[in-house]
């Protein structure tokens, strides 16, 4: 109940900050893109719209997770609002979960609204429903949750700027790690091979959550892959949530 109250308050606070206005801007951007591609891409306008739309959606939601996640707790600590809450019978874990759920709610609204706009344009250009589209959308959301949890964790052990920097690095390298495996350096240099192999096991490999290519080219994807990626994503959610909870419960608020 207390987690829900804190989540609701956090959601309202972020909502009031007008961050969801980005949806309007991105919606207008998608409209513009749809108009342009319908003029210039013969036959595949809907796919180009879907490709650009999913990419824009992903960047938007990851950007919100990154920048709002970095200040999610720091703002409460520096402005002493936190003291008003945790001096009451509210555990630090409940507070942390509430804050994260509030931001997760904003991310979800952002994803859904942008998706409905995108799907509207996609359908208008003759695009057909593909069962992988909701999966792609779900993975984009899951990816943004992981980004949020990473940045929250690093904001607790360092500061906002370092947290954003580390998270961006992990996000970029997490997307690039599979591509590195196709390079000659990986194939001929054993040190790079070991490093990249360990990296993909020990740090989030975001490529596993990226199925946009399968959606666009209507390639077959096994259900086991979808399920494995689902658990893989939630594993990282669990890891960073656990780490943040431990650090937050031991943090000193001086």
């Amino acid at each position: 109940m207390k987690v829900y109250l804190i989540a609701k308050q956090t959601f309202a606070e972020i909502y009031e900050s007008k961050v969801l206005l980005n949806v309007a801007f991105l919606g207008a951007f998608l409209f513009l893109i749809t108009f342009v591609v319908s003029e210039f891409s013969y036959g595949v306008a809907n796919k180009v719209t879907l490709d650009i739309g999913l990419g824009t959606l992903s960047l938007s939601v990851v950007g919100i997770a990154l920048f709002l996640g970095a200040t999610l707790l720091q703002k409460e600590i520096s402005s002493r609002t936190l003291y008003m809450i945790i001096s009451r019978p509210v555990s630090r874990t409940s507070f942390l979960l509430g804050k994260m759920l509030g931001l997760a709610g904003i991310l979800l609204v952002n994803v859904l609204v942008l998706f409905f706009i995108l799907y509207g344009f996609y359908a208008a250009l003759g695009g057909e429903f593909n069962y992988l589209i909701p999966w792609a959308l779900f993975y984009i959301y899951l990816e943004s949750l992981i980004v949020m949890l990473i940045v929250v964790f690093f904001s607790l052990v360092s500061n906002n700027i370092i947290a954003v920097f580390i998270t961006l690095t992990l996000f970029a390298s997490g997307h690039a790690v599979e591509s590195v495996k196709d390079t000659m350096a990986y194939k001929v240099n054993p040190v790079i091979k070991v490093f990249v192999d360990y990296y993909s096991y020990l740090l989030p490999n975001f490529t596993k959550l990226n199925i946009k290519t399968f959606v666009l080219y209507e390639r077959f994807i096994e259900n086991t892959y979808l399920v494995t990626a689902f658990f893989y994503g939630f594993l990282w959610v669990g890891i960073f949530l656990g780490l943040s909870t431990i650090v937050f419960s031991k943090n000193e608020f001086s």
Partner: peptide, 15 residues
Amino acid sequence: SQIGYFPEGPYFYPH
């Protein structure tokens, strides 16, 4: 739950 605490110069949620 039995303590009422008020910090110095707190910030409240402006919205």
